[in-house]
Design a binder for these strands. Structure first.
Lengths: 338, 338
DNA sequence: CGCTTGCCTGCAAACGATTACATCATCGCC
DNA sequence: GGCGATGATGTAATCGTTTGCAGGCAAGCG
C-alpha cells in the first residue's frame, strides 16, 4: 500500500491496539507498557507511518511554525541571522515561515492575518521599521525582536551598537586620526541612531571635532557607500578616516575611492561594521566591528522557544558583545594632516 | 470578546445562518443569496473572524506551504532566489518553509518526514547535491529544481551554464589570452560539471590548450577562491586568465593575488560567474556572467504553482539566458605571453 | 475475601473547517 | 393545479490527532 500514507488508525490496527495508545506511545512512551510499546513501534516501522502535522496541530492548537518578519530576504546580513535561527528552530521541529514585509500586496494586512489566525506559535521581528501598533494584536504569539526596540515591551536580542561605534572611533583616534567621519545608515533605523550616537560620544571623549558635514547618510547598501565616496572626494576638507555603519557600505566606499586613484589606508582609513565574510578577502582586508549575526539568530531562537514552551512572556532582553577586528584598511593618517 | 479568536460557528451565529453558508460565502460567493452574503460579511467584519488555516488545510488535505530545500541559507546567492520565490508565493498565499539541508540532525530523514506527512504542497530544490532517491518518494508533491538535474524527471529552471562558460572563454580568447585556466565548483555539483564542460569545449573551439593542471577545484566560496590563488601563484607556468565558476571565488582570488602584489587585469585577467552585487563595486570591477537569480526564483515559483493548482505534473523545463557583463577585471594578456 | 490502589488501555469527544447530499421553498409551464 | 426545475440553505460526515475520563485487571493489604 504505497499509494496512501498510513494514518494512526492503520498503525493501531496493525499493532492490535487503539489509536490512543499509538498516540501515547509517541508522545509519552513512559505511560505505555513495554510490550505494547514495542508492538506499536514495530507497527509504525512496518507501515511507514508519519504523524500528520496538520491534524496534530489542529488538535493541539498550535502550528509548529515561527514567522520571521524581515524587510528583505536577499540581504546577506539577514540571511546569516536566518541561518542562526534555523539551526535552533529546525532541530526543535519548528518551521520558519519567511515573511518579506516589503513584497506582495498589503504586507501589514497579511501579517495581521497570520497572527490572528494563529498561523504561528512565535514571531521573530528583524524589521526595525515595522509599526509597533501592528504587533500589539490582542492574540499575538510570543515574539522577540532582533534589534533595539524602544517603543514596545517585546524582548529583544541586540548587539552593543554604541560600543561598537566607540571601538571604531577609539581605534582610529589611537592611530592618530583627528578628522574622523561617519557614514550612517537610514535615519529611520534604530541601529543607525545607536551607532551615530556612539560615534559622536566617542569623538567627544577623545576631544575630537564633531562636524555634521562629516556625517554622511547611507542606507547600508554598497551603492550608498559608493555614493558617500563621491561626496567625500568632493569635500574641501576631507576626514582622514571614516567609520561606516555597515561593511557593505565600506565595500562600496573603498571600491569607489580606489577607482578614483586613492589608496586605502594610505590616503584614508576605513572601519566598517558587521564583519561580513568578504571583509577579510578585500584588498586591503577590512578593519571592522564584528557582529555575531549567527549568534544573534541563535539567541533569538532560544529565547523564543523558551517563551513558547513555557507559555510565559519572558521579558528578558539580551545584549551580545561586539569586537574590533583589526585588518589592513586602517592605518596612520597621511603625513601633514595631524 | 477579544480573548479568543472567532470561529466559523461564531460568525454563523452572529449572521443567523449555518457554518456551511459562511464557508460558502468565502469560497464561492456566487452561490449564496445577495442578502445572506451581506449579512455574513458584516458578521465576519464584526467578529474579526479569520479562517483557521490549520483546520481548513486538514479538511482540504493541503498545507498552503512550499518547502524550499537549500544547502545554506546564509549564501547570498540563494537568498536572491528566495526573494524571487517569495515574490510569487507570498501573494498567492503560500508560505515558504526553508529547510537547510545541512543543518540539524539527520536532514535526509527530516526531509522524508516533511514530504511523507504531507507537510507541503510543493517542493523547490536548490540543493544540487540532494540524492535523487530521496526525492522519489511515492507520495512526493509537485517539485521543481533550480539547477540542471539529469537523473530525475523533475521539471527544472536553470541557466545556460555551458553557454555562460563559453562566453567567458570566448571573451578572454578575443582579448588575446591563450593560457586560460578555470576554478571549478565542488565536483559533486551539477553546475560545476556544466560549466567545466562549457569551458573545455570553448577552449577546443578556439584552438586553445586544455590542460588539467589549469583546472583548480573550488567550492564556490571566497575562501576556496583565495586557496586557488595560492595554487596559481605557485605554478611554474601560469595561466594569464582565469574563468571562475562563481563571483565569490573570484573575489577571494582577486583579493589574494592583489595582496601578493599582483595587479588585475595587468598580471592576470579574471572572469567570474553570477554577477553578485559586489561585482561592480570591486576594484577593479569584476567582469562576469550575469545569472538572473531573482528571475530563476520567480519562474520556479510560477511553474510550481501551476503544477499545484492544476494538479498535473508539468514536465516542462525552462532555460534562462545568461549574459557577459564586461567590466574591468579582464584585459589583454601581459606582454610577451602570447 | 473484599476493598483500595495503581497501572494500562480504550472510548469518544473535541479541534475548526469543507462539502456531498438532503431539504425546502419558489417559480414557471403545460 | 400539479409537477419538475432551480436556487438557497441546512445537516452531518469527514479530515487525523490528542486527551479527559472511565473501565478493567492485578496486586496489596487488612
Amino acid at each position: 500500500m504505497d499509494r496512501k500514507i498510513a494514518t494512526i488508525q492503520d498503525v493501531a490496527r496493525a499493532a492490535g491496539v487503539s489509536a490512543a495508545t499509538v498516540s501515547r506511545t509517541l508522545s509519552r512512551p513512559a505511560v505505555v507498557a513495554e510490550a505494547t510499546r514495542e508492538a506499536v513501534l514495530s507497527a509504525i516501522a512496518q507501515t511507514g507511518y508519519r504523524v500528520n502535522a496538520t491534524a496534530s496541530n489542529l488538535r493541539r492548537q498550535r502550528t509548529g511554525t515561527v514567522i520571521v518578519l524581515l524587510p528583505n530576504i536577499a540581504n546577506p546580513f539577514f540571511s546569516q541571522i536566518l541561518a542562526g535561527l534555523s539551526s535552533i528552530l529546525t532541530p526543535a521541529r519548528y518551521g520558519m515561515l519567511i515573511a518579506d514585509t516589503k513584497s506582495g500586496p498589503d504586507p501589514q494586512d497579511r501579517l495581521a492575518d497570520y497572527l490572528a489566525s494563529g498561523q504561528a506559535d512565535g514571531l521573530v521581528v528583524l524589521d526595525g521599521t515595522i509599526s509597533p501598533a501592528t504587533l500589539e494584536m490582542p492574540s499575538r504569539p510570543p515574539a522577540v525582536a532582533v534589534c533595539e526596540w524602544t517603543q514596545s515591551a517585546m524582548p529583544s536580542v541586540r548587539v552593543e551598537n554604541d560600543r561598537g561605534a566607540a571601538l571604531a572611533v577609539a581605534h582610529l583616534a589611537e592611530l592618530g586620526h583627528r578628522r574622523i567621519g561617519h557614514v550612517a545608515g537610514p535615519p529611520a533605523n534604530v541601529l543607525t541612531r545607536a551607532r551615530l550616537e556612539g560615534y559622536r560620544r566617542a569623538l567627544e571623549m577623545h576631544g575630537l571635532p564633531v562636524r555634521d558635514d562629516w556625517v554622511l547618510e547611507g542606507d547600508f547598501t554598497m551603492a550608498s557607500g559608493a555614493a558617500a565616496a563621491e561626496v567625500w572626494l568632493a569635500m574641501a576638507e576631507r576626514p582622514t578616516a571614516l567609520f561606516l555603519s555597515s561593511d557593505e557600505m565600506a565595500v562600496g566606499f573603498i571600491g569607489a575611492v580606489q577607482r578614483a586613484g586613492f589608496r586605502v589606508p594610505r590616503d584614508v582609513s576605513i572601519v566598517g561594521f558587521d564583519n561580513i565574510e568578504i571583509a577579510q578577502h578585500l584588498s586591503p582586508p577590512l578593519t571592522t566591528i564584528r557582529q555575531p549575526r549567527t549568534r544573534l539568530g541563535i539567541r533569538a531562537a532560544e529565547i523564543l522557544l523558551s517563551m513558547i514552551e513555557s507559555g510565559t512572556r519572558d521579558e528578558r532582553s539580551e545584549v551580545i558583545e561586539v569586537e574590533l577586528i583589526l585588518r589592513g584598511s586602517s592605518g596612520p593618517p597621511p603625513a601633514g594632516t595631524r
